Computed example of a mutant assay.
Amino acid sequence: MLRDALFVLVLCLAGWIGFDLLEDQRDTARRERDSAQSEAAGLREAARLSGEMLAERDAIDQRNTTELSHALTENERLRRAVGDGSGRLWIRATCPASESVPATAGTTRVADAGRAELAADARPDYFTLRDQLALSRQMILGLQDYIRQVVQRTPAQP
């Protein structure tokens, strides 16, 4: 009988140790599952934010590209109008009489010749500068929008 009781005791002890090991494995598996779920939720949130940021960046780029296209089209229209003579390129200029005519010249003066106009060989440079100004303006506005709407909104990295 003592032998049977010892056998039952050893059997109970082995079962208890086996159950304890299984319980530890179960707890470890639960912790790993919870950690994986948390990481997956974080990755989903990061992907969502990244998608929103890309969409905002694309919208900013599209808007500025459209505005640049309109500005370049308008510059081309003006260039053609000046080129075919249907438009003129006027320059705001003043010519003070006291500086243009010396005091010793007497009362003889040249009549006002009209409005000042840009020389024909300088016109292409003027329109090139207008194109470059439009491009620079849209680039600066686009970068400012990107910084305000995307970069400053990005959460700090841990």
Rank of each mutant, 00 (worst) to 15 (best):
A59I: 03
Q157H: 05
P124Q: 12
R63Y: 06
R88F: 02
A40N: 13
S35N: 15
L68N: 03
A116K: 06
G114T: 00
S86A: 06
D121K: 11
R48N: 08
G106S: 00
A113H: 07
Q152W: 11
D125F: 05
M139Q: 15
I140G: 05
A93C: 05
V151M: 12
L135Q: 11
I60G: 00
A40Q: 08
G42W: 04
Q138R: 13
P155A: 04
A46N: 07
N75W: 09
R31H: 08
S38N: 14
Y126I: 02
Q149I: 08
A97M: 09
E99P: 02
R63W: 05
L135S: 11
Q132F: 11
R33K: 10
R123C: 06
R30Q: 07
A111R: 06
S136F: 09
R57W: 05
E52I: 06
L133S: 15
S98T: 15
R44I: 10
A46P: 02
P96C: 05
G142Y: 06
T104G: 08
S98Y: 13
S35M: 13
D34K: 01
T73W: 04
G114N: 03
P124H: 08
D112F: 11
A116E: 12
I91S: 10
D125R: 12
Q157C: 00
E67F: 13
T65G: 10
R57G: 08
L72C: 01
Q144D: 13
A29W: 00
T108A: 12
E32M: 12
M53C: 01
E117R: 10
R153I: 05
A47H: 03
E39Q: 07
A59N: 09
